[in-house]
Amino acid sequence: MFKDLAKKKKKSKKPKEGEEAETPAADGEFDPSALKKKKKKKPKTTDADDFEAKLAEVGAVEKEDAEEEKTEEPIQEGDMEKGTGIWAHDATTPIKYNNLLKRFFTQLHSHHPDLASTGSKSYKIPPPQCLREGNRKTIFANISEICKRMKRSDEHVTQFLFAELGTSGSVDGSKRLVIKGRFQQKQIENVLRRYIMEYVTCKTCRSPDTELNKGENRLYFVTCNSCGSRRSVTAIKTGFSAQIGKRKRQQG
């Protein structure tokens, strides 16, 4: 990883720096033209605060850019993963903006998917790992990992799972959840998705960065860390549960 990073820096010194400076602030208002300009004027201006001034400058630089793109006609080839062609360690050809942008996003997606995604739709949790124990039990192996990711207690999630699946179970020595009944990964995933909707996402801003606390008078509240909204959530209720397999005892 670090090796990789170091390599990258050398590979494309100028543009890389431009990218670095721009992207954290860019978030909502990503302006490619600003970046383009920056790439070229690198030595002159580096601070990103001066957005207004830069914008004005962009107008002047735009034409220049167009001309340059024409001269850069030769097709830029090479595998950016392997570092061949234009991506080679000691390559000196200036890399086209589009190519750099592509590289930036591929790497962002592979290394920091959280940063690349916005909104609750792309909120990701590791897929539940389900193993079969014997014929009648399912082991949900990575429950504590998932709970940590959602910032919820294992007990609360377990309670919800049991209530929704209409079953019971236990926790084994290595913190895995043993659920009575046969369940597929997909099914557990569905229940977890509903849990997230009910108890994790903020209904106001859709952020998953929330906390579940026991408020006054036994009510549970979800407090959002990004917008500060607070809502009460229903306690988990098991509801009616049918008697299964007890008829024999009743008869006998």
């Binding site: 699946l165 209409g166 509801g239 049918a242």
Partner: peptide
Amino acid sequence: IHIRIQQRNGRKTLTT
């Protein structure tokens, strides 16, 4: 109104 499902033995289920 709650519609629930419970597993019985094997792949058999029960809807309440």
